[in-house]
Write a protein that binds this DNA or RNA. Structure first.
Length: 541
RNA sequence: GCCCCUGUAGCUCAGUGGAUAGAGCGACUGCCUUCUAAGCAGCAGGUCGCAGGUUCGAAUCCUGCCGGGGGCGCCA
């Protein structure tokens, strides 16, 4: 789709060349001013460049406006120098109508596609919760984020693979096994064991050998199946479920350690094998193999990440971890560096903690104590769409407080319903059009120009923003920006719907057709946006 | 003590270098014989934690301080 901000950037660059500025060592921006009085777009080019050239920004701005590049640009109806030296662009209304036609042409399959990924092979690893209990709402929060990020990246030209790392081995699996066996005997799980009701349930079903390891593995497999189901019910599907046990059993850990050793990053101390990570960005050295001969979690994780890059050939890996795993970041990056993998290719996003408040009381979420609020519980109460949009209403960097009582009580006032209601109204309008036998016909840009009501203009501006939103969301790994955009579009649509009748008998054919075109374009935009955040576009409410 | 995140309206959060800081919820007031009122509109609500600094311009960048969350294991 035509991207005006890019067109105008080129225009400014051409004007700069015209006035003899060849090399730009200062970045300028073309942006959308908040205040409508300042036009549709503005640039700070004269502001940031003028000073460097020893000219007053305002004078330089006037000079740029005077260039033939500016005066021959066909889609503006005026320029002004404003404030300290901004150049404001007043666009001809047609610039929006052109884009609306493009949205209709591109349709749901293409609208909002951008190519920032250039087919880069990227893996997004997220959730990866230990298979020792059901997913809680905090896991779901990041699941929604990771899945939406993956969808945004796909629409941005990345070749994406979604992965869940299953920690199906080690101490916690033994602990799970012990808890099951204890329950089987009718006693309490040992200190540090798992106390949730699901453990009792599993114990009842288990009739295998009484070996702790075997029992733990068996239980973990059951739990993983349950996790898969609750993620599927949440609209989240992974391409790969990668088993930690398989990494260990394949000998990849030994292989990785000897590679690190060969590069001189491994030493032995007190019977353990250490990674000399403090030399390469970590705050201290780390143990790879304990003195009892077991590998540490870190050793397995390094082998796993090595596998991602060197065996499976991902150009880039994005891990979404909870902030409580922050301590792993420097070690993992150091290990990648030691293996000759540029650590910049490994992006670790840390999701700050999600806490739940219920009836004004903080719910302490503990998997061991079995007090967490299951994702499936919230999804059952709120629905997938509302839950997903709720999860995407704040950024990953913000520790979020979820007031469960309010969220469930006020579910009807959840922003998700607001967005879905907009789509339902559109669907209803289109059904009504069929009923009234109004057949949709192709329109020319000239015909579409009857759309000039402030509500129509606002709506056109909002929906055509999607490609920019997707691009930003992809680049900043910030899928919640799509959710923010959706709310804005919904708001503009409701305003339009309120003030601009579409199918009233008193309206001219041109108005009806033009408004229908805008409604259809809005539908496309909403459907793309809802798909990106993993929410449904409902036909009626 | 060190590291990461964070502090914006009564509450939950958008906004991360631009010109007059936004939304939802909550309070108050209008608008349905007319395409879905799960909507629209109005009104009220702000020292953007505090103090310096950089900049033509700072909620946004830098420094310090204060408050909140998380981390600093031969756990995972």
């Amino acid at each position: 789709m035509l991207r005006w901000e890019l067109q105008l950037r080129e225009l400014v660059e051409a004007a700069l060349v015209e006035v003899g500025v060849q090399r730009l060592d200062v970045e300028f921006v073309v942006e959308r001013p908040q205040n409508e009085g300042f036009g549709e777009f503005s640039t700070n080019a004269a502001l940031v460049l003028g000073k460097r050239l020893g000219k007053s920004p305002r004078d330089f701005a006037s000079e740029l406006i005077g260039t033939s590049a500016f005066s021959t640009f066909p889609f503006t109806q005026g320029y002004e120098v404003a404030g300290p030296g901004f150049i404001n662009f007043k666009m001809k209304p047609v610039h929006l109508h052109m884009q609306v036609l493009e949205v209709l042409e591109e349709g749901e399959a293409s609208f909002g596609r951008v190519d920032v990924g250039r087919n880069e092979k990227v893996q997004v690893e997220f959730v990866s919760a230990n298979p020792t209990g059901p997913l809680h709402i905090g896991n779901g929060w990041w699941a929604a984020y990771g899945d939406a990020l993956s969808r945004v990246l796909m629409r941005s030209g990345y070749d994406v693979s979604k992965e869940y790392y299953v920690n199906d081995t080690g101490g916690q699996i033994r602990s799970l096994g012990e808890s099951i066996l204890a329950r089987k005997e009718g006693s309490e799980p040992p200190e540090g064991g798992y106390l949730g009701d699901y453990v009792v349930e599993l114990a009842r079903k288990y009739d295998g050998t009484l070996d702790v390891e075997t029992t733990g593995r068996w239980a973990a497999e059951r739990i993983i199946e349950e996790i898969k189901t609750s993620l599927e019910n949440f609209g989240v599907e992974f391409d790969v479920w990668y088993s930690q046990a398989s990494i260990e059993e394949s000998g990849a850990v030994e292989e990785t350690i000897s590679e690190l050793d060969a590069k001189g990053y491994v030493y032995e101390l007190d019977g353990a094998l250490w990674l000399r990570s403090s030399d390469i960005g970590d705050s201290r050295d780390r143990v790879l193999r304990k003195s009892n001969g077991d590998f540490t979690y870190l050793a397995g994780d390094i082998a796993y990440h090595r596998n991602k890059f060197l065996v499976r050939g991902f150009d880039r890996v994005i891990d979404i971890f909870g902030a409580d795993h922050h301590g792993q970041v420097a070690s993992q990056k150091a290990a990648m560096y030691a293996l000759g993998i540029d650590p910049i290719r490994l992006e670790i996003l840390l999701g700050q903690m999600v806490s739940v408040v219920e009836s004004n009381q903080v719910v302490k979420m503990s998997k061991r104590a079995g007090t967490s609020i299951p994702l499936s519980f919230v999804v059952d109460k709120l629905g997938v769409s509302a839950t997903r949009i709720l999860c995407l209403s704040s950024s990953l960097d913000k520790a979020t407080v979820l007031d469960l009582t309010k969220a469930l009580e006020k579910s009807m006032e959840n922003p998700a319903y607001y967005v879905q209601y907009a789509h339902a109204r559109i669907a209803s309008l289109l059904r009504m059009a069929v009923q009234k036998e109004v057949s949709v016909r192709e329109l020319s840009v000239e015909e579409l120009l009857v759309l000039e009501h402030p509500r129509e203009i606002k709506l056109m501006k909002d929906i055509t923003l999607l490609p920019e939103v997707v691009e930003t969301a992809a680049k900043e790994r910030a899928p919640h920006k799509v959710a923010t955009w959706l709310k804005g579009v919904a708001s503009s649509f409701h305003g339009f719907y309120h003030d601009c009748p579409v199918l009233a008998d008193s309206l001219s054919e041109e108005i009806v057709q033009s408004r229908l075109a805008l409604v259809r374009a809005t539908q496309i935009a909403l459907r793309v946006g809802l798909e990106l955040v993993g929410a449904d576009a409902v036909e009626e409410m």
